[in-house]
């Protein structure tokens, strides 16, 4: 009772629908890696698993980066203002935080970040 055109149509729809799910639902891929840079040294890129603390030695002391549940933040830093610690958790690919006095920056990386840059 199905014609050939029916069958082709059905095949196309069945193939296209998963693609549509993929396209619309993975618009925001979770971040997978953390990029850390100290002063003028080359950046290191590390996976966001397992949960751990990373110590980074900068010009004025040691900053501690906390990695937990696919997120990252400055847990502590020797800077006076603690702006970096107050900037909180990075959750989305593309987000970055920096400790200017200690010249350390961290950024979440993902293959499909929702934003290419954040304005503030």
């Amino acid at each position: 009772m199905m014609t050939r055109a029916d069958r082709v149509l059905m095949a196309i729809v069945l193939c296209a629908l998963p693609l549509l799910y993929l396209h619309i639902w993975t618009d925001q891929e979770p971040a997978t890696m953390l990029r850390m840079q100290v002063a003028d040294m080359d950046a290191t890129v590390t996976p966001l698993t397992p949960d751990r603390h990373v110590q980074l030695a900068g010009p004025i002391g040691e900053s501690i980066i906390e990695i937990r549940a696919g997120q990252a933040r400055f847990l502590d830093s020797p800077c006076p203002g603690k702006v970096c610690v107050h900037s909180g958790w990075l959750r989305e690919a593309g987000q970055l935080a920096a400790c200017l006095p200690n010249r350390i920056s961290i950024q979440l990386l993902g293959s499909r970040p929702r934003f290419d840059a954040i304005n503030f």
Binding site: C15, A16, L19, L22, H23, R35, Q37, A39, D40, A43, L96, A98, L100, R103, S105, Q107, L109, S111, R112, D116, A117
Partner: peptide, 28 residues
């Protein structure tokens, strides 16, 4: 369709990122 899927899903895109400190801030 499989090729299309693969193309959509290819890991990473041709984006280069770098950061340095200047002007009292982080240049991204």
């Amino acid at each position: 369709l499989v090729c299309l899927l693969a193309a959509c899903n290819r890991a990473g895109d041709p984006v280069y990122r770098d950061q340095f400190f200047a002007f009292g801030t982080l240049i991204d």
